[in-house]
Amino acid sequence: MAAKSKKDLLVANAILAPLDWVDERTGAVRGTKWFLFRNVPRDVSWAQTLGSAALTAFIVQTLTGVILAMYYEPSSSIDPITGKPIAYSSIEAITNELTLGWLVRGMHRWGASVFIILLFLHMGRVFLFGAYKYPRELTWITGVFILATGMLLGFTGYLLPWDQTAYWATVVGINLNGTAPFAGPWLAQFLAGGPEIGSDALAKWYALHMLVLPGAIIGLIGVHIYLVTRLGVSSPPWSSEEAGRERPPVQTTGTRSGLVRGGGGGD
């Protein structure tokens, strides 16, 4: 028994030592434990999976998007071989020639719609549960920004295949931007990249879709998940086991006087 535990100790040290080394410098192990080994209310159930479902759809978008970026070419110049715009030809090649390219493109295309739907459902659930109330106001606000950024990602991605649908929807979109007061015309001119919407515009929309908006949304999602973990998920408000439910008066006064001083910092 003693010999065995000594061996165990060695193995444990071999595994734990590097983890400890990392944890001492970054807090990564403590952070992971903090994220995984926490309690959630007992009555949390399927309705509260919509957020992580949206996250999954976003991860699908990230992975398929990276693969598409390896084969897609954002240029509206005419390809001398196919006689079509280079962007369009690269989309044709991804769909028709690349092994499973159709699946990657199809998943990216439909994943976008699924992502938007899940964001709306998730928001509806949070609204129904009143889960945006104290202390989760900032979680809600980052969520609204995630929805707005997600819709902008959808809009900028729509142009990239450079087909008729994409092109004309974008022309309308740019003209719509132009109707905004003050910055509108300037923004429209920037997005159009010249009198004719062509390669300049395509490169700008590609940069927005590939770099700016994903960067923004990943940052927002990070803050959002941190806040969800820190503040906890709220129970269904109609649940008889609701975490934080009001207790019969006698018990309530007892609990309150003890906890308010400890938790809230007083008044």
């Binding site: 994220f35 995984l36 080994f37 926490r38 309690n39 959630v40 209310p41 007992r42 949390v44 159930s45 399927w46 509260q48 999976t49 992580s52 479902a53 109330k133 104290y134 202390p135 906890g232 998920v233 709220s234 086991e241 975490a243 934080g244 439910r245 207790r247 609990t255 309150r256 906890l259 308010v260 400890g262 938790g263 809230g264 910092g265």
Partner: peptide
């Protein structure tokens, strides 16, 4: 509000279920 949230944290700690593996299974 702070009282409500303090009670929430207390309840989750005492009667909640572990996120891993119980809740993450649903996810």
């Amino acid at each position: 509000n702070r009282e409500d949230f303090a009670r929430y944290k207390d309840d989750v700690k005492k009667e909640g279920k572990p996120f891993f593996p119980r809740a993450i299974f649903h996810d």
